[in-house]
Computed example of a mutant assay.
Amino acid sequence: MLVVTAVDAEAEAVAAGAPRLDVLACGVGPAAVAAATALALARAEAAGSPYGLVVSAGIGGGIAPHAPLGAVVVADEIVAADLGADTPDGFASVEDLGFGRVVHRPPTALTARMAERLSAPGGPTAVCAPVLTVSTVTGTARRTVELTARHPRAAAEGMEGFGVAEAAAALSLPCAEIRAISNVVGPRDRAAWRVGPALASLKRAFSLLNPVFEEPSHECR
């Protein structure tokens, strides 16, 4: 399997928790990460050692009341939350406009197994819910209200998940997303972010998830 993060600090946390996994820091945002992930997957396939699973991982914002600081969110949906058009009647997704998709659904069996492992004693608080992918991080109360109204079940916000999922889908590969919560989605308050503890939660999550990732790939589909 291939684990894709945005930045090196996230990749290092994942690798520390699960040293045998292939981990790649691909850049920030859905476009950069989609391009880098697609290239990595194509190279692996050309070399005769294709991946069977792709996981987008990193820290992210937690959406109250679903995901507190330090929690780990396992995505049951990976949603492109701001891919669409602003209209007089409100936001319209590209799916509403008839131009494409805005949701990828990870394999149900895989998300269930991951949530089960993370719920073990000593693990972080685990939440299984949609994770939103945005190109602009939410930093105001108004946008928070708009997003949560459109996605009431969403528990986290990141910038890469949908890009990774699109690259995986191009090769018909299953994809998952894991976010460790470093801050609360809402008015931007950089001083309140807890990046270090979130990275520690990410490391702990991957150490707990090793048995799941070592299962044959067909069991994850």
Rank of each mutant, 00 (worst) to 15 (best):
H218T: 10
A46E: 15
G139C: 11
C128D: 11
V137T: 14
R142W: 07
G123I: 05
E219W: 02
E95H: 12
T133Q: 10
E177V: 08
R105D: 03
A9M: 10
T125N: 09
S93V: 11
V54M: 02
C128T: 14
T140G: 06
A75F: 00
A198P: 04
V33G: 11
G161F: 00
A31G: 13
L83E: 09
A109M: 05
A126Q: 02
A109F: 00
R117V: 00
V23A: 07
T37H: 05
V54Y: 01
V195N: 04
E95V: 03
I178F: 01
H104F: 15
P88T: 07
A180N: 06
E146W: 00
R117P: 00
L53E: 09
L202F: 07
A25W: 03
G60P: 01
P106F: 00
L202R: 07
P68F: 07
D89M: 12
V54E: 01
A18T: 04
A13G: 12
S135E: 14
A9V: 13
P30Y: 11
T144N: 13
V14N: 11
T136E: 14
D76Y: 02
P152V: 03
P30E: 11
A191V: 08
V127Q: 03
R105S: 13
P19I: 04
L147A: 06
A176I: 01
G90R: 10
V14Y: 06
E10K: 10
A168S: 12
L132M: 09
S182L: 04
A32M: 13
V185D: 08
S207T: 11
A115Q: 11
G123L: 05
P211A: 02
D82H: 09
F213Y: 12
P106R: 02
T133G: 12
R20M: 06
T144S: 13
H104G: 07
I63T: 10
M159N: 05
A126I: 02
A156E: 03
T5R: 07
F91S: 09
L53N: 04
T87I: 12
G100Y: 04
